[in-house]
Design a protein around this nucleic acid. Structure first.
Length: 288
DNA sequence: GCCGTAACGGTTGAT
DNA sequence: GCATCAACCGTTACG
């Protein structure tokens, strides 16, 4: 039997084909990891939580080598539903990562006009409380009872609009952060390093990336509206197998390519055809 | 026996 | 700091 990290000893496993959920039989198992449970195949899982990355990797890797899902399921002791789900997602997105868990849709709590009005109130009277602002919005007829933002929403608007600038804290993820970074030591170093990587015509010279250990090549976004997870996973795939995942081959989109410093600050970005990106990253992978 | 998927109980994190 | 809610998770059972 192959031993996977986190696997429980044989004696802790329950009998296969036991109907846990529908019969109400106990299925909690005390494991060295804590709140583990054991599935019908004898594998350990934590309800509600994604499988560990190394198992997800293994599933994709085995499928890549032509192993059938049912065999993967039995060997890794992961339910076939889960194997199917992970492989389907991988085919569709090129990502082995679980989706973003938790959170809720951003609620449109106030229109831009209302936000502007809140800012104005705050500007005129910096000591004004959120509930006072709420009252004033109603009194001035800016909002009606049903549409007026909650006190916590107003607080959030104030925090977002005034909080960060007051303490001089820039969010490195947004554009402001990017600008700020350019004036940092990291930013200056990055700019200098990148200037060596750029050919006179503005193209990134991929071959020169190899000479800079402090710099790493990054596919930041496969599509402007998609998450970076997918692209990082695609890059992982290239590192593992030396080729782009199936879903990415012959992809009509373009990829945003950047060179970034060890600190992760974005310094320059450039749009290139996906095929060119994967061709170049594969070459880099092979040389390394 | 294999596969896709609905239902389920659970977790997470933004609001 | 707490409650709510909608996203996700992996397992099970069914067709």
């Amino acid at each position: 039997m192959s031993s996977l990290p986190g696997e429980v000893p044989q004696r802790m496993r329950l009998f296969p084909r036991q109907n846990y959920y529908r019969t109400g039989l106990p299925l909690d198992v005390s494991t060295p990891l804590g709140q583990g449970r054991v599935n019908q195949l004898g594998g350990v899982f934590i309800n509600g939580r994604p499988l560990p990355n190394h198992i997800r990797h293994k599933i994709v890797e085995m499928a890549h080598h032509g192993v059938r899902p049912c065999v993967i399921s039995r060997q890794l002791r992961v339910s076939h539903g889960c194997v199917s789900k992970i492989l389907c997602r991988y085919q569709e997105t090129g990502s082995i990562r679980p989706g973003a868990i938790g959170g809720s849709k951003p609620r449109q709590i106030s229109t831009l006009d209302v936000e502007r009005q809140i800012e104005e109130y705050r500007h005129d009277n910096p000591g004004m409380f959120s509930w006072e602002i709420q009252d004033k919005l109603l009194k001035d007829g800016v909002c009606e009872r049903g549409t007026v933002p909650s006190v916590s929403s107003i607080s959030r608007v104030l925090r977002n609009r005034f909080g960060k600038k007051d303490v001089g804290e820039w969010d490195k993820k947004d554009e402001d952060g990017e600008k700020a970074n350019k004036h940092s030591i990291d930013g200056i170093l990055c700019d200098k390093a990148l200037s060596l990587l750029l050919a006179p015509n503005g193209e990134i010279q991929f071959s020169k990336l190899l000479g800079y250990s402090a710099l790493h090549f990054q596919i930041l976004s496969h599509h402007p509206f998609e998450s970076n997870h997918r692209n990082q996973s695609a890059y992982q795939h290239i590192q593992l197998f030396g080729s782009a995942p199936p879903a990415f081959q012959n992809c009509p989109f373009t990829a945003l390519v950047s060179a970034s410093y060890a600190a992760g600050s974005l310094i320059k970005a450039k749009w290139l055809p996906t095929s060119a990106v994967f061709a170049e990253t594969s070459k880099i992978h092979q040389i390394q």
